[in-house]
Simulated assay, not measured.
Amino acid sequence: MGLHEGEIAVGEGLVRGLLAAQCPEWAGLPLARVGAGTENTMYRLGGDLLVRLPRTVEKGLALRKEQEWLPRLAPALPCPVPEPVHAGTPTGAYPARWSVYRWIEGAEAGPDSVRDWAAFGADLAAFVRELHGIDLMGAVRAGDLSWYRGGGLGECDGWVGEYFDECRAVAGAELDVDTLERLWRAARALPGPRGPHVWLHGDLKPTNLLVREGRLHAVIDFGSLSVGHPDAEHSVLWDLPAAARHAYRDASGLDDETWDRARGWAIAVGVSGVAYYWRTFPAFVAECLARLRAILADAAGRG
């Protein structure tokens, strides 16, 4: 079952056909599927390459941002990020953009890979600080660099309200949705973000943070790269253990209003993820439920 309307079916045969037509020098390399997220399917190509194929034509537009901006951002960042090496073009069999990157070795951030969560939180804060400090190089919050998470919470009122109702219907028996909605409304009532726009990764969840030797090693998947206010950048902290979350906040010096707005973003994204993917992507729903439970534990003074 697909996750989105208009999803393109992807298999090894299709990927080999794309490689044979557009980069035949790699067509004979070993090919193995290594995962799929909400927006892309990934295949490891040989030992040193990764093929990334968006699930829909629309989501393929995000790869163009990576191909244009990552080579310019990478030199200023403190750890590796994806390096595009081929910009795949649409075909009749696969009508979306696709891309080949250098493979980055590492494990997803989790209890089996991270040695010290407080150190991990401080390392992540350092990465975010450097990313947000990079000159915009003429980029502005417009077009494909104008993702919703770089704006204000008020801009999301309509769809967030609908997702609260849907989340309550499917998960209300196991989740205190009323308290989450109260916290969201409190964040929504705060003054909006101030300060200049910055570069945003947009989705710093653990599956996009690679670990080697127990420490943060690389940050991947810049498909949500945008320009805007940084509040939502911090929202994924509730995907991490409390030690990482608190170390990140201390290292970043986030004030109470910024923290509460970030929590509001975490709630909005979590609630919408539960509602939208409830029947199609249980693994992602589990991630969203864990995030929302962490927020409730924090609010109750248990996190």
Rank of each mutant, 00 (worst) to 15 (best):
His4Cys: 10
Val15Cys: 13
Glu5Arg: 15
Gly6Asp: 13
Leu18Gln: 08
Val34Lys: 07
His4Asn: 12
Gly28Leu: 07
Gly28Gln: 14
Ala9Arg: 15
Glu7Phe: 09
Leu29His: 03
Glu7Pro: 02
Ala36Gln: 15
Leu14Pro: 01
Gly11Ala: 13
His4Lys: 13
Ile8Gly: 01
Pro30His: 09
Arg16Tyr: 01
Leu19Ser: 09
Gly6His: 03
Ala20Gln: 15
Gly37Thr: 11
Gly28Ala: 09
Ala27Phe: 02
Gly11His: 14
Val15Ile: 14
Ala21His: 07
Ala20Ser: 15
Leu31Ser: 11
Ala27Glu: 08
Arg33Thr: 01
Arg33Cys: 09
Glu25Asp: 14
Leu14Asp: 06
Ala27Arg: 00
Val34Cys: 14
Val15Pro: 05
Arg16Gly: 00
Glu25Lys: 08
Val10Asn: 10
Gly13Pro: 04
Glu5Phe: 15
Ala20Gly: 04
Val10Gln: 13
Pro30Gly: 08
Ala9Cys: 07
Gly11Glu: 14
Gln22Glu: 08
Gly35Asn: 09
Gly17Ser: 15
Glu12Ser: 10
Ala32Ser: 14
Glu7Met: 04
Leu31Phe: 05
Glu25Trp: 05
Trp26Arg: 07
Trp26Glu: 01
Leu19Cys: 11
Glu7Lys: 06
Ala27Lys: 04
Leu19Asp: 13
Gly28Glu: 10
Leu18Glu: 07
Leu19Ala: 11
Val10Met: 11
Ala32Met: 09
Leu3Phe: 10
Ala27Val: 03
Gln22Tyr: 00
Gly11Pro: 01
Val34Thr: 11
Gly11Ser: 11
Glu25Ala: 15
Ala32Lys: 15
Gln22Asp: 00
Val15Gln: 07
Val34Gly: 09
Leu18Cys: 06
Glu12Tyr: 07
Pro24Tyr: 01
Val34Trp: 04
Gly37Gln: 01
Ala9Leu: 12
Glu5Met: 11
Gly13Trp: 04
Gly35Leu: 05
Ala32His: 12
Gly11Asn: 14
Pro30Leu: 02
Arg33Pro: 05
Val10Phe: 04
Val10Lys: 09
Trp26Tyr: 08
His4Phe: 14
Gly6Pro: 04
Leu31His: 04
Glu12Arg: 07
Val15Asp: 12
